[in-house]
């Protein structure tokens, strides 16, 4: 019997096990045994990937950069969701605020998600920096550090930032495009009261990461099964709806440039090492 390929994932909600059970069952039925290993935070999972405890890590964009950093670029992004590609974050303001461009945020309060959220903190702050606005110098940063270590997978911090804008405690906040759409649809956001001030350049989100020495034939075998998952299969659809995708795509690394710029500018990894 082949030993299973071990895939790591960070979980904060036990319902996630349903997603991974569907994936695992399909891989076993296709003759490519795999198992999952769950972690409470990305730092632990990246360490497990680097030390070889797992073969594949379902990495957040920040965890991908951490893996690159920790392996000295000796890793590969092999697959991702269709929805991981070309995401954007919106800077949201109240319609009656009188704020019409980024420069108007000078002297104001900007709310963001957790400090390690690429979409709700790191990338939008980099966009503001590009526009000449430094946090805590040109504007007050109000950060909602909920479930740090989950890299913003838990939308709690992002939602709290939005709530703070709605309560008038902040003048702007950062919201991922998918959340902005969902929150308008479910009534969390009243589009008559809030509007998009600016939008970040597109960036990519999660990917399946392997170390450079992961055997190519194992990777090929695993990817062939992954790409056979299809939205037209009801079992796969259940998983895909929960995980927010219609199709698995090959991995690419061209969409992490702005996050890379942000973490370098902010000395994010150096800061993380110091605080560890």
């Amino acid at each position: 019997m082949q030993s299973p390929i071990l895939v790591g994932a960070v979980v904060y909600d036990p319902k996630v096990v349903v997603i991974w059970d569907i994936i695992k069952e399909f891989f076993i039925s296709e003759g490519c045994p795999m198992d999952y290993v769950f972690y409470s935070n990305y730092e632990l999972m990246v360490e497990a990937l680097v030390t070889g405890h797992i073969h594949i890590a379902w990495n957040s964009p920040l965890a991908w950069l951490e893996a690159e950093h920790a392996t000295h670029n000796e890793c590969r992004a092999i697959a991702m969701r269709d929805t991981d590609r070309d995401r954007v974050t919106h800077i949201i303001v109240r319609r009656d605020s009188g704020i019409s461009d980024l420069e108007d945020l000078k002297g104001k309060t900007v709310a963001t998600g957790a400090k390690d959220s690429p979409q709700a903190t790191l990338i939008p702050l980099q966009v503001l920096r590009r526009a000449g606005l430094e946090a805590d110098k040109d504007f007050t940063l109000r950060r909602f550090d909920l479930l740090v270590g989950k890299h913003g997978d838990h939308v709690g911090g992002e939602l709290e930032a939005l709530r703070s804008l709605q309560r008038g405690e902040s003048d702007a906040c950062a919201v991922l495009d998918l959340n902005w759409t969902n929150w308008q649809a479910d009534g969390t956001v009243d589009p008559a009261k809030l509007t998009v001030l600016a939008t970040t350049p597109p960036f990519d989100h999660c990917n399946f990461t392997v170390r450079e020495d992961f055997p190519k034939e194992d990777e090929q075998r695993w990817l062939e099964v992954l790409f056979r998952m299809t939205y037209s299969n009801p079992a796969h659809r259940e998983m895909m709806d929960m995980e927010g995708l219609k199709e698995w795509l090959p991995g690419r690394v061209s969409g992490y440039a702005i996050l890379d710029e942000a973490v370098k500018q902010q000395g994010f990894f150096e800061e993380a090492v110091q605080s560890a």
Binding site: V11, Y12, P14, V17, V37, F38, Y39, S40, N41, L44, A48
Partner: peptide, 11 residues
């Protein structure tokens, strides 16, 4: 903590 039932490392 139901995550410990799932064996989540670090919980």
């Amino acid at each position: 903590n139901s995550l410990t039932m799932l064996g989540v490392i670090g919980e």
